[in-house]
Structure formats: structure tokens, C-alpha cells
Design a protein around this nucleic acid. Structure first.
Lengths: 214, 214
DNA sequence: CGGCATCCTCTTTGATACTG
DNA sequence: CAGTATCAAAGAGGATGCCG
């Protein structure tokens, strides 16, 4: 019974919010954007705090308005996958701007927020840059949260994904706020280390991707 | 009593939505962005459908989190003005991306949505361009909704504001969907005219600001 | 009028428990 | 795993009242 409530206003911002302005909706889109096609329970885990029935409702609404498709997997798998349509993917700039605007709010973690390491994907690709794209690619492994993540340079682009690198140039380990602070250029390396960040490997390569201080 | 509900997630998108993700919040910001410092009742009129108590709540929350300031006017005026802080203004890219994403949803008006002419400001500045900035500036008057609006070129920029132009190059009059369709390049001039748009003056100047068809 | 506060009803959500 | 079902709490919408 998902009923799509509308502002009933002839304004494109209002129309957009009619579709993605409800609670949890954009975070579900964020999950699908970061992780690609996902199962119901993957989404449930990636959205700590959401009620299971609410996730069902939202997925139905998103399907109804054409932002998500449900791919019913063939028998052996016994599960189905939710993935973004093109129109759903087109929400990326909105998430990016929200993430950019929200970045300063990450400076003082309350400590009681939930955290999932794959949430780092957005900030990494938003803030990091490859200053010297012609040099051999580098890999950075991040160890924070429940699973490791890899940040790498792929011809001038920053790519971030789950998993371990087989031979990373550097490994960073510590609280997410420290990794984020360091890699977004807000926290100097020695300060991050002083606050508990552990670094191993060739820390010099970090300069290559950390943005210039303003 | 406004309690700021949080997703409690260490993710900048979630943090942003903690502050501006509630119902009506971004539309209030849109109003303040378009109209500048506004009185309570101006906002109430610009947000058809909002409950008066909800507007009060949201304004308090926005004040609390530092996105809006209340300027208590001196005695003779007996009213106060709400205006965006710098941090509030910084939400502009988010509204722009929402507006851009929502634009296709404007193609088929249901006809029963509310409309206010000043809502045209965003789409105009988002879609129109001045193809020949060196030629003398032009002014277009739009007559739709409750008050006229003026679109003008100011050294290469598109400016849109309330009011009448004293000597506009063109005057467009008709349903907002037609004006929007024409000026965003989706509707050819003769088609718009056939559907009821009235044009007077030098319609040739329209080519100067209508975006190239893709 | 402008700027709320109150009261009431209805809907949405959050938390938890249960099922094929 | 992938949802349903249930129920209490919070939020939204609408009407009206109050006060300078």
C-alpha cells in the first residue's frame, strides 16, 4: 500500500522531493549507488536503524516510480536483486551535493553513530584527486569498520571498493574520522597519527591523492 | 520543542539529511533562496499546503542548526524577517540538482498543482543561457500565475525577478507549462503558440536565451 | 493583519515479533 | 533470507483561538 504523498506544487524541486523526499529514500538510493545490485538484507544491513517493513514500502515506491528495478533471480539463487534504473542513477549529483554539503558535519563524530566502511566510497571519490596521473597507479587499503576498503588510482581517476589490496602502497587503520580527516586534507598526517591513526607502508604516496588545503 | 531527529549514521549524506531531510525543510530553503529575507506570512503563501504550526517548527529547527537567522525588526515595522545564513545559502547546489533532476517531471502538469510565478526563478537561471552576451541586453516579461516576472540578460548572465519590465522585448503570457516548455527548449515556438501561449513583441530575441536542443 | 499556540485527528514511523 | 503483522509513538494536516 505505498501511497506516494505529493506537495502538489508545479515546481521541479517539489516534484523531485515528491519522489525522493521521504525519510530513508535517498539513503536507500545511496546504498544501491555504492553497492550496485543488492539483496533485501544487504540493504537492511547497510541502513542501520531502518524498520524492515519500511524498507519494503520504500522499495515498492521506488519501483513504482521507476527508480528501482527488482530482478527476480532464477531458482538456484532463491533471492532477488534490487538495482537502480538509469533514472535512479541520475540522482548521483544530488547525493554528491548532499555529501559535499554534509562533509563539515563529519568533523566531530559523536561516537555513537553507526558506521559502515563502504560509506567511505562517496567521500573518497568526492574529495581525493590524483595529482600525478602519469606515475604508476597506487593502492591504499583502509581498515576501519567491518570490512577493509581499497582506494586506488586508475588512470587519473579515484576508485574505491570493498576488499583487500594484494599489495597496497599504504595501509591506514583507525577510527573512520581519522581516515576521513587525513584523506580529505583537514588533518595533517602527524596530527592524525597522534590521535591514533596507524599507518604502514609508503606514507609519502598519500600526498598524491590528498587534496590541496583549500 | 522541535526535536531534531537523526539517522545516527557517520555518513555525510545522512548528516546532511539529518538537517534538511525533513518534510518541507528544503522547500522553505527554496523560498528563502528565491525571495531573500521573508516574513512568516510570505513563506506561508509561498508554500501552499504547509500547516502554519509546521512552518513555525521548521523555522525554529532551521534557526537552531544555523541555517536561518531571524532578524527582529525594530518597533515601527512590527514584523521580523527570516533569512538564510551563509551555510543555508550553501544549499543552493543541492536545490539546483534537485531542480535539474525534477525538470522532466514538469512536462505533464496534472493541472491541479499549485503554482506561484516566482518559482520560475530557479528553472530560468538553470536552463537559459545568453548565447550572444555582447549584444545589448534584453528583457522578457512573463505573465502567468499571480504576478509578472522579468527575465533579463545582465552581461552574459540570466537574471530573473518579480515585477514588470518597463519596456520588455517580448511578453509571454499563458500557462506556466507552456512558458517553461518554450524557454527550456522542449517546445518549439509555433507549438507553444498553438497550445495557447500568447506572445507579443520581438519573438526573435527568444532564440538568444533558449538553450540549444540538447 | 502578522506570528504564532493549542487542540484534535489522521498518517507515518519505529521497534519488535512472527512466518514461509 | 525475505519479507508480514502488530502496535505504540511521533509527525503531519487542518481548524481555530489569542495577542500585540
Amino acid at each position: 500500500m505505498p501511497e506516494v504523498r505529493s506537495y502538489e506544487a508545479y515546481c521541479s524541486v517539489a516534484k523531485a522531493l515528491d519522489l525522493v523526499g521521504e525519510r530513508w529514500t535517498l539513503l536507500i538510493v545511496r546504498e544501491l549507488m555504492i553497492s550496485g545490485p543488492s539483496r533485501y538484507t544487504d540493504l537492511l544491513h547497510g541502513l542501520p536503524g531502518i524498520a524492515s517493513n519500511l524498507l519494503v514500502d520504500r522499495l515498492k515506491e521506488l519501483e513504482e516510480v521507476g527508480l528501482v528495478n527488482r530482478e527476480v533471480a532464477p531458482p538456484p539463487i532463491a533471492t532477488s536483486l534490487f538495482h537502480l534504473t538509469d533514472r535512479g542513477h541520475a540522482l548521483k549529483p544530488i547525493l554528491e551535493e548532499l555529501g559535499r554539503w554534509g562533509a563539515p558535519l563529519m568533523e566531530n563524530p559523536s561516537g555513537k553513530e553507526a558506521f559502515q566502511s563502504h560509506w567511505l566510497v562517496f567521500p573518497m571519490e568526492l574529495h581525493l584527486v590524483d595529482h600525478t596521473p602519469k606515475r604508476p597507479p597506487i593502492k591504499i587499503e583502509l581498515r576501519t569498520g567491518e570490512e577493509p576498503m581499497v582506494v586506488e588510482t586508475v588512470n587519473g581517476q579515484i576508485r574505491t571498493h570493498r576488499g583487500s589490496a594484494d599489495n597496497p602502497n599504504v595501509i591506514l587503520e583507525g577510527r573512520p574520522g581519522l581516515i576521513l580527516g587525513l584523506l580529505t586534507g583537514r588533518l595533517p598526517l602527524d596530527e592524525a597519527r597522534r590521535r591514533g591513526l596507524k599507518l604502514s607502508g609508503d606514507t609519502a604516496v598519500l600526498k598524491r591523492v590528498i587534496p590541496a588545503p583549500d
